[in-house]
């Protein structure tokens, strides 16, 4: 059973600098179709600015897509009646990339974590407090920390407050947008183990956005690679990791830095920027940077197609 299905979702942003200027439009997400099996984790990696956060917000029901359909446990999220949509909101929680911006600086940690509890669960004050304390301990903070304000936590501590908030109402799906980015390795490992345990115990599902490919490999069951608003490669089974073959995915893997000073990469040699200006809007979104781009890549965009079982690639060469 799919917890969440996104069908051909798109999202554009338009903005202008001065009122006399023409509107500029950015297509942050362009027709993405992805689904997440219940109790599994879908990893999402991709270049900075390629629309991962936007897609995550769409999945969590925070941002409305301009186009497309989202199904939560098979029922449509966009066309359901309001009352039902509210219930659906409880099942979808998100841990934001910029956690400082997602919490009210004037609320204590206890209040921040208690917010979804107050909104969705009917608990009395003592029960709520007990739950907040338990959650703080689950994510490895001290009980007394609930009186602290966001500004008094370090980056990693605040991130754990946000994870606790998302866990509070035991949702079906949690969108984790770079949840580890400001944690150090030992806390990362704890959080990763915690997330893996919750997945097993409660059948939680995740959309796990991260640029830490090793962590994605550890937690995910399936993997999608995004580039400029498109999913360019998808494997339904993470054990096929070695088979990733889209030119961008290959570059991504080769940029992973090993934690071993014996294997330092020579930064001079690798000159990977061979940007070709002047490509029309029709071609593959990666063509401008792709070392393997051919004439066809410059004028027709490749669609995502199945190249072998459970393995989809959007590239003319496959």
């Amino acid at each position: 059973m799919h917890v969440l299905e996104m069908r051909d979702v798109s999202r554009k942003y338009s903005f202008k600098r001065y009122f006399w200027q023409r509107k500029k439009v950015i297509e942050a997400v362009k027709g993405v179709t992805l689904s997440i099996e219940q109790g599994t984790c879908l990893g999402l990696v991709g270049e900075s600015g390629c629309g991962k956060t936007t897609l995550g917000k769409i999945a969590a029901g925070i941002e409305k897509p301009d186009q497309g359909e989202i199904l939560l446990m098979g029922s449509s999220m966009l066309s359901s009646p309001r009352s039902q949509r509210l219930l659906m909101r409880k099942e979808l929680q998100m841990v934001f990339q910029d956690c400082t911006g997602s919490v009210n600086p004037r609320h204590t940690a206890g209040k921040v974590i208690g917010e979804p509890i107050r909104n969705f669960l009917k608990l009395n004050k003592d029960e709520e407090e007990g739950m907040v304390e338990k959650l703080l301990e689950t994510v490895g903070l001290n009980k007394e920390d609930r009186h602290k304000y966001p500004g008094q936590f370090s980056g990693g501590q605040l991130q754990r407050v946000c994870i606790a908030r998302a866990l509070a109402v035991k949702p079906m799906l949690i969108v984790l947008d770079e949840p580890l980015s400001s944690l150090d390795v030992s806390v990362q490992a704890q959080i990763l183990n915690l997330l893996a345990d919750l997945k097993k115990e409660y059948g939680l599902s995740y959309l796990f956005i991260s640029h830490d490919i090793e962590a994605v490999y550890y937690l995910s069951d399936a993997l999608a690679v995004m580039y400029l608003g498109n999913v360019v490669e998808y494997i339904a089974d993470i054990s096929m990791f070695e088979a990733l073959c889209h030119p961008y995915a290959e570059k991504l893997l080769s940029s992973v830095l090993p934690a071993d000073p014996g294997k330092i990469k020579n930064m001079e040699v690798k000159n990977d920027e061979n940007e070709k200006p002047g490509t029309g809007p029709g071609g593959c979104s990666y063509a401008r940077r792709c070392a393997r781009a051919s004439a066809r890549c410059l004028d027709t965009a490749p669609g995502l197609k199945e190249v072998s079982e459970k393995h989809y690639v959007a590239c003319h060469h496959y």
Partner: peptide, 16 residues
């Protein structure tokens, strides 16, 4: 933490 919210390819570029 100059490269925390960056993907590995950009991180690579920045470190360079």
């Amino acid at each position: 933490e100059p490269t925390t919210s960056l993907d590995v390819t950009v991180q690579y570029q920045i470190l360079k």
